[in-house]
Amino acid sequence: MHPAPSVIIFTTFSGLGLGLLFWLGISPDPHGGWVGFTFFFIAFALACGGLAASTFHLGHPERALKAFTQWRSSWLSREAWSAAGALAVMGLYAFFWVLLGIHIAPLGWLGALLCLATVGTTSMIYTQLKTVPRWNHWSTPALFFALSLGGGALLAGYINTAVFLIALSGAVQAYWFWQGDQRFSDSGTDLGTATGLGSRGKVRAFEPPHTGTNYLLNEFVYVVGRKHGDKLRLISLALSTVLPLLLLLTNPGHLLAVIAVISHVTGVVVSRWLFFAQAEHVVGLYYGKR
């Protein structure tokens, strides 16, 4: 799948921002005043920036509001509702607490729940696709939740929780990377089932429909950088998990914590790039490609 920058930015930063909002929402004794304001500002900047980036790859962003209509059937529409709900409820919660000093805990809990729902619906947009076997697995939502909550705890300064969740997200990530390599062949879909000719012999793509490229090949058969896949996976795990864990275990001050955050986010961006670049769509089979 083509790793569009807008979608990588969207999933990485909205996940991080929503993770931070989750921890701010359930905190029994949240920071007030300017410290509280800063936390909420960072969280909203990440979440809103990420969600705004998701509209950049639309052919008609001016019609984006129509995406709220089909929540009964579409995960993308459900995501739009959860995101709008999470931002609205958490905005209200932050307004009462940071500006008026009134802590309405149930509002925070509801907002935290909606943040989780947004991360979940985002992951389901990818997980639902049977056409991309690497994504079509329970471990995809698990990975999105682990990264969002781990990154959020890191940003929120919950060191012990962050250590546990970042270690967990690293384990889920490693499982997702390497177990995912099996999933296309496990799915049983090949050029034989794609053409219906598999029972008659070995099917080979002899001649493509055209000499040039097309939308399908550009969007679904992205092969750039695949040969570096394993190296990038290790880089991603080192930056998103190993380095932040080492830094956190030294009981860091602010500077080291900032380095841990930058390292983690960079690692997650690499992971998201691989999430798309290494995902193989079954339509590639028709072109003799994966």
Binding site: L58, G59, H60, P61, R63, Q128, L129, E219, V283, Y286
Partner: peptide, 19 residues
């Protein structure tokens, strides 16, 4: 009504939709 998000083309196994 199409916003050009491309998700329908992603979900089609046959490559029947093109943006």
């Amino acid at each position: 009504n199409c916003i050009g998000c491309g998700l329908c083309a992603w979900s089609c196994p046959y490559g029947a939709r093109e943006m």
